[in-house]
């Protein structure tokens, strides 16, 4: 009897702490979202580069480089460009943890009775509206080059963008948690974002690659996002859509664990 009530009580406590955690997560996410809404210049600046790539590289190479299979080059790189915008904005989002630290906001969160895992997940989720809105803008621009999507491929696109955004925001925040200065962060992420982007197969098909490049692209989470997005939007891919999504999910979980760990060891003051 007593044992049952203890178990019952523990469950009640677990449910309570779970809803408390959700509340805190929501609060932290909401803060990021409001800042995002109020700083629209961020969005415009970060959408510009992908659009430039789509039209300049897309049309430029497209005129000389026809051998990508069934679609023209500009359409072929479109899913890759969507991923590019997510890669850049997500990894870059890691710099906001440095700002939080600089302005002591982080200290006020860390002194609250909130676990570091919650702080990490809340911050990561906070980076996702940015990626989603950018992807949406690019999808609208895609209409002008003849990219038409039905409802299912739209849902698939959203899922992939969210997964890629979560995993790469984790990467950005992990790096940000170790680095004190914004200048240092900028320098280091340029060593991260360009390999992530170039190795992902955003600009070329994977099937004709030399082995070393294929192997490198296999350990790049963005590869699976690009491939699955190509499957969703254009109906062509190197791996199957479901394999891509599963691999991306595994990457997301691993990178999130890294991120939580680095947030736990981050010094509060």
């Amino acid at each position: 009897m007593e044992a049952t009530s203890t178990i019952l009580l523990n469950n009640v406590i677990n449910v309570m702490t779970f809803t408390e955690s959700l509340g805190r997560l929501y609060a932290l996410w909401l803060r990021e979202f409001k800042v995002f809404i109020r700083e629209r210049s961020r969005l415009i600046a970060s959408t510009f580069t992908p659009v430039l790539w789509l039209f300049v590289i897309g049309s430029g190479f497209g005129s000389t480089h026809p051998s990508t299979g069934v679609v023209d080059y500009q359409k072929f790189i479109f899913p890759g460009i969507v991923c590019m915008s997510v890669i850049f904005s997500s990894v870059f989002f890691g710099s906001y943890i440095i700002w939080d630290r600089k302005f002591d906001f982080l200290k006020s969160v860390m002194v609250a009775p909130v676990s570091r895992d919650i702080v990490f997940i809340g911050k990561t989720l906070g980076g996702m509206p940015n990626s989603l809105v950018q992807a949406a803008i690019l999808l609208v621009i895609g209409l002008t080059i003849g990219i038409n999507m039905d409802f299912i491929s739209l849902v698939q696109t959203v899922i992939i963008v969210l997964l890629l955004s979560f995993s790469l925001t984790s990467v950005g925040l992990t790096i940000g948690s170790y680095i004190e200065s914004l200048e240092g962060f900028q320098l280091i992420i340029s060593f991260v974002v360009f390999p992530l982007f170039f190795l992902s197969g955003a600009l070329f098909p994977l099937k004709s690659l030399p082995l070393w490049l294929l192997l490198l692209s296999a350990i790049d989470p963005a590869t699976y996002a690009v491939d699955s997005l190509r499957a969703a939007i254009l109906g062509i891919s190197s791996y199957s859509f479901s394999i891509d999504v599963v691999v991306l999910l595994v990457f997301t979980i691993i990178l999130a664990i890294f991120g939580s760990y680095s947030f736990r060891r981050m010094r509060a003051v």
Partner: peptide, 19 residues
């Protein structure tokens, strides 16, 4: 240590959730 992009009220609301 408040977030200066948020209003005073929003900062307090955030911390009322956290606590």
């Amino acid at each position: 240590s408040s977030d200066d992009m948020l209003t005073g009220y929003e900062n307090l609301k955030l911390h009322s959730w956290l606590y």
